[in-house]
Design a protein around this nucleic acid. Structure first.
Length: 644
RNA sequence: GCCCACGUAGCUCAGUCGGUAGAGCACAUCCUUGGUAAGGAUGAGGUCACCGGUUCAAAUCCGGUCGUGGGCUCCA
């Protein structure tokens, strides 16, 4: 009896090959390689499929062991953790019905129907039960079930949601369940080989309502979020990161640094920019305006309301109605608060007969729009009802399209990186099922976007079918200091509006042609981008953005006069300077300036007045020694000019 | 919009069993003129989100409204 039947060949990532008896378990192989690997392995990747460590191997193949370091390993670990939590909950709440429990970024959740609301006090009990299940170390066993068997099983368990899932499975799908102790769950898997592998460094984080299948017409389930790590230190780091994020929360910093507020008396989702926030915004706007003129855009202003007819023509009343404020009627004419700027820019285009020689025409506007967002989705500056888009519309010929998109991408990256965002995730969204325009146009536009990305050498992913109905688009997400990504920039090609508004230009051939339109935003919304900036910098803005760049701290009254001279000189030079001449000790003033995250502090006492110098302290770098006022001023102006 | 939680002074938060409100910070006045993250004293500040109900009595219990927070497919 030779190999072929009894032995299988296993190939390892380094190319080496070993023979094992048929039916060998991955965990046996792992042990064979090293005890450490066996201990750290969570699952295995065998011939490209992730499988559990206790599934027998019956054919030759390539194997790679997945640990917590691998994203796929982490998913398995968290998925199993979700099962662990579900088992604990089923023990404590026998009537609970399980819906779905997937791994997510940084942990897992499980949607469960419970007969009473769950409070965070229940967490301790559930966690204790989870620890017990880990202790009991049940093997996690995979079972393949026939549809009938599966239905029978979950009917017996009164798991209505699982039954619904099974019934929706396509015929050819293999139905599997995983059992650990008394607990069995419909699941695709894979999972860790036993509950003991999940360790004790887990934590339930929060509860929230979530609709079954995300549909608000369905029943609301209780979603419990949790996380789990193989090492205590990793859990602590995760919790620390959550704390950090909380400290950076723009809503908290916005209040503490007196940047903006949202008042009940004004309306939710409507922002009051306080003087300090307004200073930052003004810098953002000025930078944006200068760059747009430099990049051959023309800036325009358009009104906040327009006749409803305009929005009917643009189609917004049919496809965007639920996001629009109610229409108002004046003198029997219906007006609409604007949710978008595009129809205005188109109307400006149409005030002349355009020649191909005029194109491209680039119209930009910091346009304030109002959109009705459901109250539950509003969130600080991130999701609001009134906001200012850094909007522009480029009208061009088909031949110019690629070139224009490349220019937009250049500008996007220049602007984002100046604000300190150097990492991007780029997505190209292609034609959705419902679309307008011809297939040739879609093809050409998608190619133009793709070519532009290639020219720029940007890595991107394709989001199939995620384009807007009127054209394909590129979305750019930025990554902040905490590694979170935020979608800000978007570049969208539009075939629809030029058609609806019957836009044209006269071509070289003397005949009218339809221009192509590009919608684009770099920051997206000033409000949201400001919120992201606050969190990215934790409120400690770089000098060029800081609402207060320098604060002067005279020690005693007799130093006030010199301080005032310096104040005036800096103010005239365009520095955002403040003079703290309150009757307080210098330590107190420094503390306050530190708390308010002012980059430069200048202490002025007897010595400084005597030799006409300034004792400079930098927020990050500490004391910089004594500088001549002009010297400091030049240093500041230089640093501001560098935008660093 | 929906589910859950929450709403007390400008901010952060106490407030027991229903008996008419408290701290720290901030603010004002005074003392202090002090050299790199909080000097001291005194004082002013609240229709306890709003409306209604139960009660001799409501910040507290009940209902509603408004607002805030977490979340509402990353499909077993």
């Amino acid at each position: 009896m030779q190999n072929g039947k009894e032995k299988i060949k296993i190939t390892f990532p380094d190319g080496s090959v070993r023979e094992y008896p048929r039916g060998v378990l991955p965990e046996t192989i792992a042990k064979d390689i090293s005890p450490r690997l066996a201990k750290e392995a969570i699952a295995a990747k065998f011939n490209g499929r992730v499988i559990e460590l206790n599934r027998p191997l019956t054919e030759d193949g390539e194997i790679r062991f997945l640990t917590f370091e691998d994203p796929e390993g982490r998913e398995v670990f968290w998925h199993s953790s979700a099962h662990l939590m579900a088992q604990a909950i089923k023990r404590l709440f026998p009537g609970a019905k399980l819906a779905i429990g997937p791994p997510i970024e940084g942990g897992f959740y499980y949607d469960i129907e419970l007969d009473r609301p769950l409070s965070t006090e229940d967490f301790e009990k559930i966690e204790a039960e989870m620890a017990r299940i880990v202790e009991e170390n049940y093997p996690v066993v995979r079972q393949v079930l026939s549809r009938e068997k599966a239905l029978e099983l979950f009917k017996k368990l009164h798991e209505d949601y699982k039954i619904e899932l099974i019934n929706d499975f396509p015929d050819e799908q293999e139905i599997t369940a995983y059992q650990q102790g008394e607990f069995i769950d419909l699941c695709r898997g894979p999972h860790v080989p036993s509950t003991g592998r999940l360790g004790k460094h887990f934590k339930l984080l929060n509860v929230a309502g979530a609709y079954w299948r995300g549909d608000e017409h369905n029943k609301m389930l209780t979603r419990i979020y949790g996380t789990n790590y193989p090492k205590k230190k990793m859990l602590e780091e995760h919790l620390h990161r959550l704390e950090e994020a909380k400290k950076r929360d723009h809503r908290k910093l916005g209040r503490e640094l007196d940047l903006y507020s949202i008042q009940e008396s004004i309306g939710n989702g409507l922002i009051l920019w306080h003087p300090r926030g307004a200073r930052v915004r003004r810098v953002m706007e000025q930078f944006w305006i200068e760059e747009h003129y430099r990049h051959n855009y023309e800036l325009v202003y358009t009104p906040h309301v327009a006749k409803l007819d305009l929005w009917e023509r643009s189609g917004h009343t049919s496809f965007y109605r639920e996001n629009m404020f109610d229409t108002m009627v004046m003198d029997e004419v219906a007006y609409q608060l604007k949710p978008m700027n595009c129809p205005f820019h188109i109307t400006i285009y149409k005030t002349h007969l355009r020649s191909y020689r005029d194109l491209p025409i680039r119209l930009a506007e910091l346009g304030t729009v109002y959109r009705y967002e459901r109250s539950g989705v509003l969130h600080g500056l991130m999701r609001v009802r009134g906001f200012t888009q850094d909007d522009a519309h480029i009208f061009c010929t088909p031949e110019q399209l690629t070139d224009e998109i490349v220019k937009v991408l250049d500008l996007v990256i220049y602007v984002l990186s100046t604000f300190g965002f150097k990492e991007y995730e780029v997505y190209l969204s292609t034609r959705p099922e419902k679309y307008v325009g011809t297939l040739e146009n879609w093809e050409a536009a998608t190619n133009a976007l793709r070519n532009a990305l290639e020219v720029k050498g940007l890595d991107y992913e394709i989001d199939p079918g995620e384009g807007v109905f009127y054209g394909p688009k590129i979305d750019i997400k930025i990554k902040d200091v905490l590694g979170r990504s935020w979608q800000c920039s978007t570049v969208q090609v539009d075939f629809n509006l030029p058609e609806r508004f019957d836009m044209e230009y006269i071509g070289e051939d003397g005949r009218p042609h339809r221009p192509i339109m590009i919608h684009r935003a770099l920051m997206g919304s000033l409000e949201r981008f400001f919120g992201i900036l606050i969190e990215h910098y934790a409120g400690a803005f770089p000098l060029w953005l800081a609402p207060v760049q320098v604060v002067l701290l005279p020690i005693a009254d007799r130093h006030h006069e010199f301080a005032r001279q310096v104040y005036q000189r800096f103010r005239e030079a365009g520095i955002r300077v403040e003079l703290d001449d309150r009757n307080e000790k210098v330590g107190y003033k420094i503390r306050e300036a530190e708390v308010k995250k002012v980059p430069y502090m200048v202490v002025i006492g007897d010595r400084e007045v005597a030799d006409g110098k300034l004792a400079v302290r930098h927020k990050g770098e500490g004391q910089l020694g004594n500088l001549d006022p002009e010297e400091l001023l030049q240093r500041l102006l230089q640093e501001i000019a560098n935008k660093s």
